[in-house]
Design a protein around this nucleic acid. Structure first.
Lengths: 181, 181
DNA sequence: GAATCCATACTCATTAAATGAATATGGGTG
DNA sequence: CACCCATATTCATTTAATGAGTATGGATTC
């Protein structure tokens, strides 16, 4: 996934989410993401990539940037989230990921921001994703029932996928008990 | 993962593996991968990408291509695996994937070719990957023991990862019983 | 029997993302 | 006073992915 992508992935939305808490600039974002911020557990980002993404998000009309004096000699380019950006971020937060492989980065990123917004948002996020997972589970179970050759490669793949989906469901349940009152 | 990659991913090795069974050419590879071949379960590939990858593999010295007459008017470019290519493929087959996220494509691809090579190769592959998974499991369990704040984001991430790893271990066990005598 | 369409087969220009490396400078330190 | 480091950003390069294009012989249709 790289060239010809064009639609923002979790990386872009993570920056929008951080910008939602106040104006940001590239240098500081990179430093935060590399040190304290828990997001480093799911996203390792190079400095030049942060700048490239901020630039892209400005061109997409989600961020507005202006040069302001920082603590260094060079002017700092400070971005703030505008209405379109806020709407895009909200829409992203409210859309469950569509594929198990997206849970690792895309769902965990949403969960990070949900936790910062309180338990109601967190509960909503977990419930919506849980429902999506159940739907995946059902599809795969159907596929497995219509395929009774145990050595068939497609069946082996489906068995793998089902095991991963079931694990996600268990983990989401576990999140409910540890993160929600 | 895209620009600045350079080291072959599973996609390249899949083509090497297919070329190991006899000479191949782009048009036919794409057709096979899109229809009957079980690999379509883990890799959807565009025609132009097949050609680009074959080209790259030739430049890397793993394939040797020559123009031969096919059934159409245009000459067909037929590739066959040379020694370096065979060695690279064998090395790939014998190296367990290093990260849970690689199981979905990279390990399943190896498993596909292992199944075609017989039960001994398959057993060897599964055993080696099982050991690697146990090592991941141990690392994460250690991390979880040194972190007792249940709401900590890093802990939530680790809990997710552990659940996925445990599911892989269970699935590998299941593969042992269904794929091995 | 002419026109049209499809399968075979590959090539190429375009686009986007990731990254390393470069740039500039003020302030602190030995 | 020389040197290094932190701040802060820019840019050219590399690579992958893809859509679209090219060419033509044989089959199909009317």
């Amino acid at each position: 996934m790289s060239p010809r992508r064009q639609d923002p992935l979790s990386t872009e939305y993570i920056l929008l989410g951080l910008a939602a808490k106040g104006p940001v600039h590239g240098y500081d974002l990179h430093k935060q993401l590399g040190t304290l911020d828990g997001l480093s557990a799911i996203w390792r980002v190079k400095q030049s990539q942060v700048y490239a993404l901020l630039d892209k998000l400005e061109n997409m009309g989600y961020l507005h940037g202006e040069a302001v004096p920082g603590t260094a000699a060079v002017l700092r380019k400070q971005y703030h989230l505008n209405d379109a950006g806020q709407r895009a971020f909200d829409a992203w937060m409210n859309s469950p990921v569509q594929h198990p492989r997206q849970v690792r980065q895309e769902f965990l990123a949403r969960l990070y921001f949900a936790q910062q917004s309180g338990v109601q948002v967190t509960r909503q996020l977990i419930d919506a994703q849980y429902a999506a997972c159940q739907s995946w589970q059902k599809s795969i179970q159907d596929a497995l029932e219509h395929n009774d050759e145990p050595q068939n490669f497609q069946r082996v793949v489906d068995a793998y996928r089902l095991s991963q989906i079931n694990a996600i469901l268990d983990w989401l349940d576990q999140c409910r008990t540890t993160l929600l009152p």
